[in-house]
């Protein structure tokens, strides 16, 4: 099934919760409401002829000038070999998105990484804590306004001279 057809079915089923469909992009995507992401994903996973049973990628992108963080879901179906892309926009200063861990278990670690590096809180997540950075790290590095700390536990983060 074409990605456009999948988005049209989504729009028919969920109406206002599908905010917009961008069909002319290189990878057509649909922007959806953050609050409805769980039921949308459940529909895409279980719907006949859609059956997107794999969350191949979930990434967060910080659009500082527009003021939101975008969480991008790449879904794929092994049975029908088609994909769907959903995007959720959440404001930068209070980035909260419901978790899709109950729909695909792969979201567990992917969401932990987005929380760690971008600071997006996933409500309902079973184990939301830092994954890549140390537990006592301050800040979310992948944000565009992240300032690198000058030292960590007494180790300075710059190389003063190569001939130390």
């Amino acid at each position: 099934m074409d990605a456009d057809e999948i988005y049209r079915r989504l729009k028919d089923e969920f109406g206002e919760k599908v905010v917009s469909i961008e069909a002319s992009a290189k990878d057509p995507f649909a922007v959806v409401e953050g609050d409805a992401i769980v039921e949308l994903c459940t529909y895409l996973r279980d719907g006949d002829d859609i059956r997107c049973n794999v969350l191949t990628n979930q990434s967060g992108v910080d659009y500082k000038s527009e003021g939101y963080i975008e969480v991008v879901y790449h879904l794929y179906s092994y049975a029908y070999r088609h994909y769907a892309i959903l995007k959720v926009r959440t404001p930068r200063d209070e980035a909260v998105v419901p978790t899709v861990e109950t729909v695909w278990k792969a979201a567990n670690w992917l969401e932990r990484e987005i929380y760690d590096l971008l600071g997006v809180c996933f409500t309902g997540h079973s184990d939301l804590r830092r994954i890549m950075l140390p537990e006592d790290w301050v800040g979310h590095p992948l944000r565009k306004d992240f300032v690198e700390p000058t030292e960590y536990h007494g180790i300075s983060t710059t190389r003063e001279s190569l001939l130390r």
């Binding site: 290189k26 990434s59 790449h74």
Partner: peptide, 20 residues
């Protein structure tokens, strides 16, 4: 401006590159 996703069958499996 835009974004693109590409999947490559690496030795460890399907590696997905998403570039904005």
């Amino acid at each position: 401006a835009g974004d693109a996703q590409v999947r490559v069958e690496s030795a460890r499996g399907d590696m997905s590159w998403y570039v904005v």
